[in-house]
Computed example of a mutant assay.
Amino acid sequence: MLKKRRSLLFFLFLIFASCNAQNEAPKELKVKEIITDKNVTLSQVSELLEEQTELHSINIINWDTFSYTPKADFRIAHANNQIWLKYYVTEENILAQVDTINGGVAGDSCVEFFFDPKADGNYYNFEFSCIGMPHLAYGPGRRARQFVDEEKIKEHIEITSSLGNEPFAERTGGHSWEMTIIIPASILNADEGIQLKGLKTRANFYKCGDRTSERHYLSWNAVGTETPDFHRPEYFGSLVFE
C-alpha cells in the first residue's frame, strides 16, 4: 500500500512539474557580441565562449512519459555575423548511426537549435548528432520544411565534437561530450543579407535521442504540447543579439 502511494505521489509530482514549466513566461537570453579577428578557429571560439559567456541549461521535461534527464548545457555568442555555440552533454547512452547530412539525426544523441530570425514563425532547425552530423531546413512548421543544400552546409557551418566524426552503435555506461559550432548568417537562405547585431529574435534549444535506449526530449524554453513536438515556434523563447 505504501509503495503504491509513493508511486502515485511521484506521478502527481511529474504532472505538476510539467504543467508548472509550461505555464512559465518565455525565457529571454541576451546573446553577447565577442569582438575578435575574422579568421578565428573552432578551438579559439571554444576558448572565447568559455571565457566570456554564461552557461545555460536545457533541462525542462515537458512530457512526463519521457522523464530521463541527461545533463545538457550550452553557451552562445555572436561575432563577425556568426552565431557561436558550445554544447556540453552528459548522458548514460550515446548513439551516432546517421552518416549523411540532413539525415534523421534527431534519433541519435542529438542537440538542436531552432532559430526564428525575424520572429515571424519561419524558422531554421539546426540539428547536430553527437558526432557533429548536421541537419538543416527552413519553413513555418514541421510539414513545410525546405532543406538547405548539403554542399552549402559543408562549406559554411563549422563543427567539432569531442567524440570525433565517425558513426557508431549505441554505447552504454555513461558518457560526456562537448561540441563547438560556428553558424554564419550566410547559411540563412531565406534571410539573405541579415545582420545579427541588434537583432531581436526567437529560438529554442533542445536535447533529444529518439532512438536511444532512454528516449528523451528536453528543452530550454518550455513546450506546451501534449506529446513531444519541437517544431512549435509559438513556444520559442527570445534571443536578443547585443
Score class of each variant (00 low, 15 high):
residue 4 K to V: 13
residue 5 R to W: 15
residue 5 R to H: 14
residue 7 S to A: 14
residue 9 L to V: 12
residue 9 L to H: 12
residue 22 Q to K: 15
residue 24 E to M: 11
residue 26 P to A: 02
residue 35 I to T: 13
residue 39 N to S: 11
residue 43 S to H: 13
residue 51 E to H: 07
residue 52 Q to V: 03
residue 56 H to I: 08
residue 57 S to N: 08
residue 58 I to Q: 02
residue 62 N to F: 04
residue 64 D to C: 14
residue 65 T to Q: 13
residue 67 S to T: 09
residue 68 Y to N: 10
residue 71 K to F: 12
residue 75 R to P: 02
residue 78 H to A: 03
residue 80 N to V: 06
residue 81 N to D: 12
residue 84 W to K: 06
residue 86 K to A: 05
residue 87 Y to A: 10
residue 90 T to G: 08
residue 91 E to H: 10
residue 92 E to I: 07
residue 108 D to F: 03
residue 110 C to A: 04
residue 115 F to Y: 04
residue 121 G to M: 02
residue 121 G to E: 04
residue 122 N to L: 11
residue 123 Y to C: 02
residue 125 N to F: 12
residue 125 N to D: 15
residue 127 E to T: 05
residue 132 G to Y: 01
residue 133 M to F: 09
residue 134 P to R: 01
residue 144 A to G: 11
residue 147 F to S: 09
residue 152 K to T: 12
residue 160 T to C: 13
residue 164 G to W: 00
residue 169 A to S: 15
residue 170 E to P: 06
residue 173 G to Y: 10
residue 175 H to A: 05
residue 176 S to R: 04
residue 182 I to Q: 07
residue 185 A to L: 05
residue 189 N to F: 10
residue 189 N to H: 12
residue 192 E to F: 11
residue 193 G to A: 00
residue 195 Q to P: 01
residue 198 G to E: 05
residue 199 L to T: 01
residue 202 R to M: 12
residue 206 Y to S: 05
residue 207 K to M: 13
residue 213 S to A: 15
residue 216 H to Y: 12
residue 217 Y to T: 00
residue 222 A to Y: 03
residue 228 P to T: 03
residue 233 P to T: 03
residue 234 E to I: 06
